[in-house]
Write a protein that binds this DNA or RNA. Structure first.
Lengths: 236, 236
DNA sequence: ATTTAATGTGTATAAAATACACATTAGTTA
DNA sequence: TAACTAATGTGTATTTTATACACATTAAAT
């Protein structure tokens, strides 16, 4: 059931025909990635007739014996096979008619993963990375959920070292700046950016130089190990 | 049913005996007030045996035909008769065993209300204001919910004019500062506080003076009308 | 008239954010 | 091998924001 993309719809139809209708609980994951100087989000083709042709976020019903956080973790694991993911709860969306098959309250999480270092489990070619800036319309209220999570990420990114989840182990300051520019959707001054990052002391100078660049190579850095732990947010 | 304090328990017992157990959805409201230079929170005596003697937040199951935001609004309205309340969603708590009667995922909201200008609907003397700083133990995971919401309020308070919900229409800068000190649980420098507030331009000088004080009276201010709207958060 | 308990106000200093330019380096190409 | 290209690496001046701190003034109470 876990790997059946039709699980959500099927379960909802059953629920919505029960005499005493109750509220279903789901989680939706806004999974951000970074590729080609561009912030991406992982979307799946909607399996609902109402939304045919539209993409939606990855989500699923929460199981009765599963913590809310654990459900979002499961969804990520199913699709990316990642164990040690960064996941953070953002907001819960609970309008009565937000789901056409019945009443579903959904809690949105966002996640950051390194696209290159993990293969997706693509089933039926339904799952793909999309440029965040090109997304116009999504199924359900998922556009709003995406925007909420993006705003949240933009706020978080200069305060905490969450970006490390999008970076390779070793990277130059230019590469790091490009990730920030993609997330914030605005260019940054190189000298001021470097000053800000230096103040945070998140990085370790590797005393190695870039390679494979057709210009003067930059120094390579990595995040200090103490900033690499993800874990869950404490609450669930 | 809405005004029956046993509603929550009764409904949950019914749910938990259904063959196909599903997840119940509730909201819990952290209702902050301000009195005697002290930040208060509105608590109700828990009606569960497991938590006898303990207080809990005001909460209720969300009805199938009710938006999530609307549920929190209803709970406030039932108990305070306030229509135009400030309410903001903070976090959703969804551990499997957080509720002893069954699986309940709850979304926490916080609210700020002016204690003096509204009578509570106290039923059976079960509902009371408590000093936030004195609270040791609450039913369920409500202590954690309270702490999460308090942290959220503390963050919000210097950025947005939410405090107006705790203030009388007219107030002196000293009174305003006392509210900030109660929320932040730390003393503030008077000159710097006034400078910060002045920069925000939230206040209107009323050209009136305090009264009924046994010392030099201060000027009175009010929040500019455009900062008084509450409404709901846009999402639900 | 004196005491009390507050109000109202400004400046100096430190810290943080911003704007901005040039010499250096390695690879590529003519 | 010289010149070109496209990047790296770096510092200072300016503005803005945050902080620390003290004294004359006012109205009421005694």
């Amino acid at each position: 059931m876990a790997n059946n993309p039709n699980f959500k719809t099927a379960a909802l139809e059953k629920i919505s025909h029960l005499e005493y209708f109750k509220i279903a609980v789901s989680v939706d994951c806004v999974i951000f990635g970074y590729l080609d100087k561009d912030l991406k989000v992982l979307l799946i083709q909607s399996d609902l007739e109402e939304f045919s042709g539209l993409n939606s976020l990855l989500g699923d019903l929460v199981r009765p014996d599963e913590d809310l956080d654990a459900a979002s973790y499961r969804i990520l694991k199913e699709r990316t096979d990642l164990d040690d993911v960064f996941l953070q709860q953002v907001h819960t969306f609970g309008k009565v008619n937000r789901h056409p098959s019945g009443r579903v309250v959904t809690t949105a999480y966002y996640s950051l993963i390194n696209i290159n270092s993990h293969k997706l489990k693509i089933i039926d070619n339904d799952l793909n990375w999309h440029s965040v800036k090109n997304i116009r319309k999504l199924a359900f209220d998922h556009k709003e959920i995406l925007e909420t999570c993006l705003a949240h990420l933009q706020q978080e990114v200069m305060e905490t070292p969450v970006v490390h989840n999008l970076m390779p182990e070793k990277f130059s300051l230019r590469e790091l700046q490009e990730v920030y520019e993609a997330i914030l959707a605005s260019p940054l001054d190189r000298r001021n950016f470097r000053k800000k990052i230096a103040v945070k002391q998140w990085l370790q100078d590797l005393n190695e130089m870039e390679d494979n660049v057709s210009h003067r190579p930059g120094k390579l850095y990595k995040f200090k190990p103490k900033y690499l732990k993800n874990g869950f947010s404490r609450k669930s």
